[in-house]
C-alpha cells in the first residue's frame, strides 16, 4: 500500500467509532471488563443525555451490550464491549496508526 492509499484509507475508518465521544467510551470499555453508566459519565465528562444517546448507538451497532441490573441494592446500567466491538476498535486503531505514521514520514 503506497502513501496515497494509506491516506485514502482514512475514508474507510468506522465513522461510528470515529466520533470523539464514542471513541472515548470504547477506549474505556476496551481496557475494562465492564463499567456502569455513572463510571462512564465521570470518565467521559459527557452529559447524561449525551452519554445515553451514544451508548444506544453503540448498542444498536452491537459494539457494546447494555444490561440493567442490581449490585446489592444499587441499580446499575452495565456496559460491556462485545467481540465485534473489540474487533472494530482494533481495526480502527490500526487504520488510524497507519494514517498518522504516513502523515509524519
Amino acid at each position: 500500500m503506497n502513501d496515497t492509499d494509506t491516506l485514502q484509507s482514512m475514508l474507510d475508518v468506522d465513522r461510528l467509532i470515529h466520533e470523539p465521544a464514542r471513541l472515548i467510551i470504547l477506549s474505556i470499555l476496551y481496557v475494562l471488563e465492564s463499567a456502569d453508566f455513572l463510571y462512564l459519565l465521570r470518565e467521559t465528562g459527557l452529559g447524561k443525555g449525551n452519554l445515553s444517546s451514544h451508548l444506544t448507538r453503540l448498542e444498536q451497532a452491537e459494539y457494546i451490550t447494555i444490561e440493567k441490573t442490581y449490585r446489592g441494592k444499587t441499580p446499575m446500567t452495565i456496559c460491556q464491549l462485545t467481540g465485534a466491538g473489540q474487533a472494530a476498535f482494533e481495526t480502527y486503531r490500526e487504520q488510524l496508526k497507519n494514517v498518522v505514521n504516513t502523515m509524519y514520514k
Binding site: 481496557v31 475494562l32 463499567a35 456502569d36 453508566f37 455513572l38 463510571y39 441494592k73 444499587t74
Partner: peptide, 19 residues
Amino acid sequence: EALKERITYPRTGYMAFKP
C-alpha cells in the same frame, strides 16, 4: 466488595477489571 456496593458504586460508579 459489599462496602464498595454501598459506598463507591452509588457515588463514582462501578467498573470491573478484565480477568
